[in-house]
Amino acid sequence: MTTQRTDTPLVQLKDISISFGGIRAVDHVSLDLYPGEVVGLLGHNGAGKSTLIKILAGAYQKDGGEILINGEHAEINSPRDARDFNIETIYQTLALADNLDAASNLFLGRELVTGLGFVDDAKMENETAKIMARLNPNFKKLKEPVSALSGGQRQSVAIARAVYFNAKILIMDEPTAALGVHETQMVAELIQELKKQGLGIFLISHDTREMLELCDRVSVMKNGKLIGTERVEDVTEDDILSMIIMGKKPDKAA
């Protein structure tokens, strides 16, 4: 690592640990994320990537470690807490209520209401139509329960939900897993755009090449431990692959 940024990171995860039963799913992992930066998380299935970001998203409570947001200690014990820090998450499982339509899902927990306090379905539908027109112009099934949507369409609903609410910190757990080539390209462009707006993004994916294109830095995890974090311009795809497989940092020619 040649140049170290000196400004305050948006997010600092320090020594984060969590166990499920006997398994240390995340084992003393430290990561940071700067504004306008995309940090990729790579690793085998079960390496602990989702678990780590779920701690930041408030879905899991860490056993140890500390989270700092803008350099200040942050207590995140629920998804609501995370939201208060402008953290938005696209979960690997998408986390949609299948029986509700796209608009109800997009605004779930943050419904627009009329003056009388009733949910304003018409307005939410309008807003949903607008953002979907931007993210996925082919998306037409606004009125149907999301169970009637394809995997990719469901994914665009989940992405729309994360983008709509002006996140400062965006967590994307395999956002392109179910997407076609065209839609994947769209997400890539979206990530670039959000990055320009100064968001910090944690991106998880198994596609090493895609990660090297989209991310500024990549971190590799194995068996709950952080193997290392590298700036993408310092490493090759092979270096990354060997980190994932062998769990060792590449020998760097200085």
């Binding site: 998804p79 939201r83 499982t93 209520a97 029986n99 509700l100 779930l108 949910v119």
Partner: peptide, 23 residues
Amino acid sequence: RSRFGRYVYAIGGNPEAAELAGI
């Protein structure tokens, strides 16, 4: 027409998603 009702349906459809949505 109320948030409460919406959350009832959401919890029924996917309790985990409802929880993650901050309900």
